[in-house]
């Protein structure tokens, strides 16, 4: 089956777990997520490439009642590789790590990464070696991906995607406001569930 556009994959992930907290890496992927339809459970990183996973990992540990879905690209996945063993060691049941892999740094002009290809990093193998409970590969949000999203993790999902045909607009919500709304949402949930 051919690869889908990132926005299609992101829309399907959000439909599958609409209440999850989504943390997206900087660059086009955050813009793509906003394009799906901005929601208070989306936290976009403006910069700090590679930081989405450690941020999501800590968030998952501190908010065990909330599922956290980290959206990485293949470039940011490689930059944040050092955090994988920490995910395996802490093994938060509520963490999902999605890597949308187009084989390039598309936000900066399409320079290739070493994540794909015959000599590249095997993303699923790296996740499993680090101690993820499971690591899947799929070209779409299939039934098995949707099922994995509802099982205790940490879960890794590697999804090859097609290069973009258009670029989504920049994030419109101010960084401070993203923090404010996320804290409000999580405090509300923690209060409701206490």
């Amino acid at each position: 089956m051919s690869s889908a556009a990132p926005t299609k994959i992101l829309a399907d992930l959000v439909s599958a777990v609409p209440d999850a907290m989504f943390v997206s890496t900087c660059g086009y992927l955050s813009r793509d997520l906003q394009q799906v339809g901005d929601r208070s459970n989306f936290f976009y990183l403006a910069g700090s490439m590679g930081a989405a996973l450690p941020l999501g990992l800590a968030l998952a540990g501190c908010a065990p009642e909330t599922q956290v879905v980290v959206i990485d690209g293949d470039g940011s996945f490689l930059m944040g590789l050092n955090c994988l063993p920490l995910v395996g060691a802490l093994a938060p049941h509520n963490l999902v790590h999605v890597v949308l892999d187009n084989g390039m740094h598309e936000s900066t002009g399409g320079q290739r990464t070493v994540a794909t290809g015959r000599s590249g990093v095997r993303i699923r193998k790296a996740m499993r070696a680090a101690g993820y409970v499971r690591a899947l590969r799929a070209t779409h949000v299939t039934d098995s991906v949707a099922a994995a999203l509802h099982r205790p993790g940490p879960t890794g999902i590697h999804i090859p995607v097609a290069p973009r045909t258009s670029v989504a607009p920049r994030i419109i919500t101010a960084p401070e406001e993203l923090v404010r709304r996320t804290r409000r949402l999580l405090a509300h949930r923690a209060g409701r569930l206490r």
Binding site: P54, G80, A190
Partner: peptide, 18 residues
Amino acid sequence: APREEVAVAAAAGAYLAG
């Protein structure tokens, strides 16, 4: 943390969770 930027990013995630 394995690296300082992991610690700083984790700090941000913890702050989001209160």
